[in-house]
Design a protein around this nucleic acid. Structure first.
Length: 577
RNA sequence: CGGGGCGUAGCGCAGCUUGGUAGCGCGUUUGGUUCGGGACCAAAAGGUCGUGGGUUCAAAUCCCACCGCCCCGACCA
């Protein structure tokens, strides 16, 4: 028989320092509320202490994550935060990740890093321990603290330098089998975020520094989100802004003999930006050709877009097939174009010219003349420019056509990235020689996937989506306490007795109530209860007892209801289900 | 790393222009009155004014350097 000690938590015995005033440097609602509700305190930029209330809420999110990831068949491990430099060199990511990693060294001078992620460690483990197809597939995961030297930590736990992440790694015998592991995690993620009460949009994403074949991001839609995304209003297409494609536009008109006059130079003194040119010549930005000079692996190239578009460097790098891509410095621009920065144009350039596909067939446009204080009118791209190739080189935006359906239109939204799944392939297994033996006795590399959830970020995202003017409105699944009891006058015997009876019943039912036993005025208790956002509030007072019982109110409800104690339990259970 | 802003009591701020014994609100402590939506009265504690240097008879205030934080940008899983 197991002894269970059940302690009823009293507010006076824990530590929940709520703030009446709003801390100054908290920018978004969820950050402010976490500080005001006494959940976290800042230690340094992007580094936080979790106070009891924040810790309890974090544990709730972790619990949901573990339940669903376990259910999906993954196995929990715990890997070290401290990692040797060598494994990062082995995967070839040391240079790529060096700016993100906190790098330290031990007393013997060995280089170490605080782990920003764990592909290297897990693949090294698996390379030693997994050797047969009989051991596959398998997925390991952990819930662990990650360290990343963010360029700009902000918004509290949203972008922190130390944060809790759930990361999982799958190993399969084949690319097809790996799709199964990927799908299992994808499904688990949808369940996790649904259980956290989050409205999440899954988008196609770029796999970035992680490498790999494809990936999806789980985005919590919020205006305060740091990531842009687009979704189609006509089909299921949705993508991260970095990755998003757009419809190919109308087929080009035949540009020969279409009546575009011959190019003509026009003087445009001190007009080096699209806005200035557009204003001076009274021509809309979309009829301008923006010419940017990039350096692609040392080689200068010209990139053309219409004046109202932004270059997407990921797309550009892919189209060029280059490894390093940077905007050319002023000296290079002047050398290549023969003009100061701001007057580049595509006519007569002797370097490769890549154009955004929106410019195909562009006729009667304006561009820089490769000559100081001069632009060229009446440019016909087919007639006047030697284009090396057309490709999708710019960001999609709201109003663009959908790349996947006929008349869908893309809508621009903002989101918080709470989860990311990657189909990695064999990049790491080959680097770490993680192979297995097939039934036929053949050596093959393991096919990997990796899957992250920002646990601390998810916690804050819940608050971002669930709050009102008075405070947090916790979904009961992640609430630090589901029920708070407010005995308004503790020196009133009947109030005290009723509170004790109710808390005993709630505790026995597993609801872990919190009793606000502070010697505070009622108003203070009400304000704090709203701020902290317990899903259910029960008021016990002389007035409620005189009215026949206790007063129960769900956080979201406008008005409380008074019920006799006998009926209170079932009503509370109903609110929390 | 570039641009902007801010560092004065636990929190939010004034004082700085024009140098002269450091203030307000909230919170905290004590006593009293209150007690259903952040009460009231009285008393009290609490600050090397971010750090270092300089100017001056005298620096929170003027000058220089550094550190930290916030915002915008570049960049990033």
């Amino acid at each position: 028989m197991r002894l269970r000690v059940q302690i009823v938590m009293h507010l006076s015995k824990t530590f929940i320092p709520t703030l009446r005033e709003t801390p100054q440097d908290a920018e978004i609602a969820s950050h402010r509320l976490m500080l005001r509700a006494g959940m976290i305190r800042r230690v340094s930029g992007g580094i936080f202490t979790f106070l009891p209330l924040g810790l309890r809420a974090l544990r709730q999110v972790e619990r949901i994550v573990r339940e669903e990831i376990d259910r999906a068949g993954a196995i929990e491990v715990l890997m070290p935060g401290l990692q040797p430099r060598e494994i990062w060199e082995q995967s070839g990511r040391y240079d790529l990740m060096r700016d993100v990693m906190f790098r330290i060294h031990d007393r013997q001078g060995h280089d170490l890093a605080l782990g920003p992620t764990h592909e290297e460690v897990i693949t090294g483990l698996v390379a030693h321990e997994i050797s047969s197809y009989r051991q596959l597939p398998c997925t390991f995961y952990q819930v662990q603290t990650k360290y990343r030297d963010e360029i700009r930590p902000r918004f509290g736990l949203m972008r922190a330098r130390e944060f809790v992440m759930k990361d999982a790694y799958s190993f399969d015998a084949s690319w097809d089998a790996a799709d199964g592991s990927y799908q299992a995690m994808y499904d688990a993620y949808e369940r996790i975020f649904a259980r956290c009460g989050l409205n999440v949009k899954v988008v196609e994403a770029d796999s970035g520094a992680m490498g790999g074949q494809w990936s999806h991001e789980f985005m919590v839609l919020a205006d305060s989100g740091e990531d842009g995304l687009v979704e189609c209003n006509g089909c299921t297409y949705a993508a991260n802004l970095e990755k998003a494609e757009r419809a190919r536009g109308a087929p080009p008109e035949n540009s020969a003999d279409n009546g575009c006059p011959s190019p003509e130079k026009v003087v445009t003194p001190e007009t080096t930006t699209i806005e200035a040119v557009s204003a001076l010549l009274d021509i809309p930005a979309q009829r301008l050709i923006k010419t940017l000079i990039y350096t692609a692996d040392i080689q200068p190239v010209a990139v053309l877009t219409s004046g109202d578009r932004e270059i997407n460097e990921l797309k550009l790098a892919r189209a060029l097939g280059c490894r390093e891509l940077t905007a050319a410095d002023a000296a290079t621009v002047e050398r290549v174009t023969g003009a100061p920065v701001g007057y580049a144009g595509p006519i007569g350039l002797s370097i490769p010219i890549h154009a955004d596909l929106e410019l195909r067939g562009a006729s009667d446009y304006v561009c820089g003349a490769n000559q100081a204080d001069t632009h060229t009118l009446h440019v016909d791209i087919e007639r006047d420019v030697t284009v090396t190739g057309y490709a999708d080189l710019t960001n999609a935006r709201g109003g663009d056509g959908c790349p996947q359906c006929d008349d869908g239109v893309l809508q621009a939204k903002r989101g918080i990235e709470v989860g990311h799944v990657f189909k990695l392939g064999t990049k790491y297994s080959e680097a770490f020689d993680a192979r297995y033996l097939t039934a036929e006795g053949e050596q093959k590399p393991l096919v990997m996937g990796c899957y992250g959830i920002g646990v601390t970020r998810t916690l804050q995202a819940v608050i971002e989506q669930h709050h009102d003017a008075n405070g947090i409105c916790w979904p009961s699944s992640v609430a630090p306490y589901k029920v708070v009891l407010l005995p308004l006058n503790l020196s009133h015997d009947a109030t005290r007795e009723t509170t004790e009876r109710l808390s005993a019943e709630l505790t026995a039912a597993g609801w872990e109530p919190l009793i606000d036993d502070r010697d505070e005025r009622p108003g203070v208790k009400f304000k704090d209860a709203d701020l902290i956002g317990y899903p259910v509030r029960v008021v016990i007072s002389e007035r409620s007892l005189a009215a026949g019982g206790v007063e129960i109110k769900a956080r979201a409800a406008d008005k409380p209801q008074t019920l006799p104690l006998a009926e209170a339990m079932s009503q509370i259970g109903e609110f929390l289900s």
